[in-house]
Structure formats: structure tokens, C-alpha cells
């Protein structure tokens, strides 16, 4: 399975996700809504390290983030599924490295993650539909906009690590 986890510092970069969620930097918000940092980290990780590692990383991130947030809704199902799906894409297809492709995958990922949260919150009966849609759209758009620069950089770094490990 995972070549990236052999490099401890690569795994340690996952700590950036809860840190960014907690720090919630103001300039990186759209209409008061932060991007889906978990998606921005998980996408390159899963593309480089495969479906099993991606799913496990999604599960781990989901556990941490659910611990940081209140309420019954969970990010675990969407993140685990996304990790597995992106891992399969990274393994089976040609290498994905174009900015547009990364942005599109992040858009779909953030939309799925937000959709799962939206569904859970509607089922739980807490959120009215309009504010939830506003949050969902803002987070999806912002994540897609940030994905090309951030995910390209991570892909570059991690592919170098895995290539270095093979050679």
C-alpha cells in the first residue's frame, strides 16, 4: 500500500488540515465559509498513494474533524469514499496533474462532501434549506478555486517522494 506513509513528514502534513480548520484564516473564506481543507489535502494524497491509503486517510481525517466539530453530522463517509475513488483514479488512469482536472476533481469532491453534510443536516432537522445551500455552494466554489495551486504543489512534492522511494 502506501509509499507516502513511509515518509513520516508526508503523513505529518495531514496535521495541517485540523490546524487550518481551527485557525480558519479569514482571508481564505468566501461569504464567511471556509474551504474544505480535508478535500484539498486528500485529493493529491489519494491520487499518489492509491485507493486503500486514500480511504484510510479519509477515514482518519474524518475522525479527527468530527472530533473537532459539534453535532451529529459526520464527514467520514464522504471523505473515505472520496479517498478510495481518487485513489482508484490515480492508479488506473493516466497521471492527473493538470490544474483544470485538479480543480474539477476538488469541485466534485467538495460538492459530494457538502452534499453529504447537507443531507445529514436536513435529515437531522436542524438546518433550513437556504442557509445550508449557501454554505454548500460557497464551500464548493472556494475549494475548487484553491485546488489547482495547492494540490499541484502537493502532487509535485509527493510524487517526487514516491519516485525517490522507488529508485
Amino acid at each position: 500500500m502506501s509509499q507516502l506513509t513511509r515518509h513520516r513528514w508526508c503523513l505529518a502534513t495531514a496535521l495541517l488540515v485540523p490546524w487550518l480548520v481551527l485557525a480558519s484564516p479569514g482571508p481564505l473564506k468566501l461569504a464567511g465559509v471556509a474551504p474544505a481543507w480535508a478535500v484539498l489535502w486528500l485529493l493529491p494524497w489519494a491520487l499518489v498513494d492509491g485507493p486503500l491509503s486514500g480511504a484510510l486517510a479519509g477515514l482518519g481525517l474524518g475522525l479527527v474533524l468530527d472530533g473537532l466539530h459539534l453535532g451529529p453530522i459526520s464527514e467520514i463517509p464522504a471523505l473515505a469514499l472520496l479517498g478510495w475513488w481518487w485513489g482508484r483514479m490515480g492508479r488506473l488512469g493516466p497521471p492527473i496533474e493538470r490544474s483544470f482536472s485538479l480543480g474539477l476533481l476538488a469541485l466534485i469532491g467538495a460538492a459530494l462532501l457538502g452534499g453529504s453534510l447537507l443531507l445529514q443536516s436536513l435529515l437531522a432537522g436542524g438546518w433550513p434549506l437556504l442557509p445550508a445551500l449557501h454554505t454548500w455552494l460557497a464551500q464548493t466554489l472556494l475549494t475548487a478555486l484553491l485546488a489547482p495551486p495547492l494540490c499541484s504543489l502537493q502532487l509535485l512534492l509527493w510524487r517526487r517522494q514516491t519516485l525517490g522511494g522507488r529508485s
Binding site: 471556509a34 453534510l117 454554505t135
Partner: peptide, 14 residues
């Protein structure tokens, strides 16, 4: 206040 998330899916402070 060490973390502020007044918008988004969770409306909370740490």
C-alpha cells in the same frame, strides 16, 4: 477565543 468558526457547517468557537 482560539478558534472561530461563525460560518459554515458548524457555528462554534473554541
Amino acid at each position: 477565543v482560539i478558534s472561530r468558526q461563525p460560518g459554515g457547517w458548524w457555528q462554534q468557537l473554541v
